[in-house]
Write a protein that binds this DNA or RNA. Sequence first.
DNA 1: ACAATAGGCAACCATTCACTTGCGTATCAA
DNA 2: TTGATACGCAAGTGAATGGTTGCCTATTGT
Lengths: 107, 107
Amino acid sequence: MVAYCGAVADDLFKALADPTRRTILDELTEKSGQTLFEICSRLSMKHQLGISRQAVSQHLALLEAAGLVETRREGRYKFHELNTAPLRQIAERWLVADTSGPEKGTP
Amino acid sequence: MVAYCGAVADDLFKALADPTRRTILDELTEKSGQTLFEICSRLSMKHQLGISRQAVSQHLALLEAAGLVETRREGRYKFHELNTAPLRQIAERWLVADTSGPEKGTP
DNA sequence: ACAATAGGCAACCATTCACTTGCGTATCAA
DNA sequence: TTGATACGCAAGTGAATGGTTGCCTATTGT
C-alpha cells in the first residue's frame, strides 16, 4: 500500500505548503461550511490578510484538489467543508512504529 | 500555544512539499545515520533519481532547517539522522478533537 | 426586466524554487 | 607531500507558484 506516495500525496503536501492555505484550513476547522466571501472576510478581519477574492478562490481550488476541502453548491452559494481524512496519512508515513521520543544523544 | 503556526511551521511544510525530500525522509526512515553520498546512491539506485550531489545536499539543508533531520560529523563524514518530532505537530493542528472518521455523506 | 450578489475563467507579472555548474575547504590514505 | 575523498559555498537558469486584473456566467431580490 503505497498510495500515499504518488501524485495524491504531492497534491496534499503542496496544498499544505502555503501559509494562507493553512490559515484557511484553520478557519474551516473553526467553522466548517463557509462560503468564499465568508472565508475572504475572515482572512481579512481576523488575520489581516490583504488578499483578493480570486486568490482565495484559487487556494480553495488547490485545497479541493488535495481532498482537504469538499464543496457543495446551494443556489448561488458554494459551501466549503473541511475533510481531515488525507491528513492522517502524513503522520503514518514516517511515524510508523516509532512512538518513542526523539533519541538524540546516545544515553 | 500557537508555536506551530509561525515560521517554524512554514519551514516544516515547505520542507515536506518536495517529493525528493519526502523520498529522502523515507530512506532515512529505513536507515537512519546515512552520509550524503549514501543518500545520493540510494536515490539513484532505488528511486532512479538522476540528481546531483549538491541538489541532495541542499535538500538535506532544508530538512535540517525544518528540524526533520539532525546531523553529526565524524571526521570527513557527516551523518544524517531522522527526527520525526516536528511531524507530530501536523496532525495535532487540524485533527484536534476529531477522532471520528470523515463524515462525508450524511448517513 | 434590471441590478446586485456569488462565483468562475484566463492572461499576465513578480517571486520563489529546484537544479546545475564551478570552485573551495577539510579530512584521510599512499 | 600528493592525490583522492567527502562536503560546502555561491552564482546562474528555467520552471513553478502566488497574486492581480479584467471580463464573464449564474442566481437572487425588487
